[in-house]
């Protein structure tokens, strides 16, 4: 047992905390925060478990994947925020409208 597992477990905790907030909160900004926390959880699992190769050598492939993931996350966050602002400008609210059609 190394602290690799400890961080990986924290990562799965973050994933679930984020999921909970994503489902429970109505405000879009909170949902965006929740998605980001979930992403951090996934990244933490990815990098923490790469630590199992020992103290001296670390597997660089998950590191590169997480850097890719961080950049994708900031792109998605920017698009989500712009969409939220546009929605708020049109509807006066930053909450998801009720589904139409049913």
């Amino acid at each position: 047992m190394t602290n690799a597992f400890l961080y990986a477990l924290a990562g799965s905790g973050l994933f679930v905390l984020g999921l909970h907030a994503l489902v429970m909160h109505a405000h879009v900004l909170r949902k965006i925060l929740a998605i980001n926390v979930m992403g951090s959880g996934v990244f933490l699992i990815l990098v923490a478990l790469a630590r199992r190769s020992g103290e001296t050598t670390t597997d660089p492939v998950p590191h590169a994947m997480v850097i890719t993931g961080i950049v994708v996350a900031v792109s998605a966050t920017a698009l989500a925020l712009a969409l939220m602002l546009k929605l708020a400008e049109k509807s006066g609210q930053a909450v998801l409208p009720d589904k139409h059609g049913d």
Partner: peptide, 8 residues
């Protein structure tokens, strides 16, 4: 497993 080297 507690030891894995992945692609290192």
């Amino acid at each position: 497993p507690s030891y894995a080297t992945g692609l290192s």
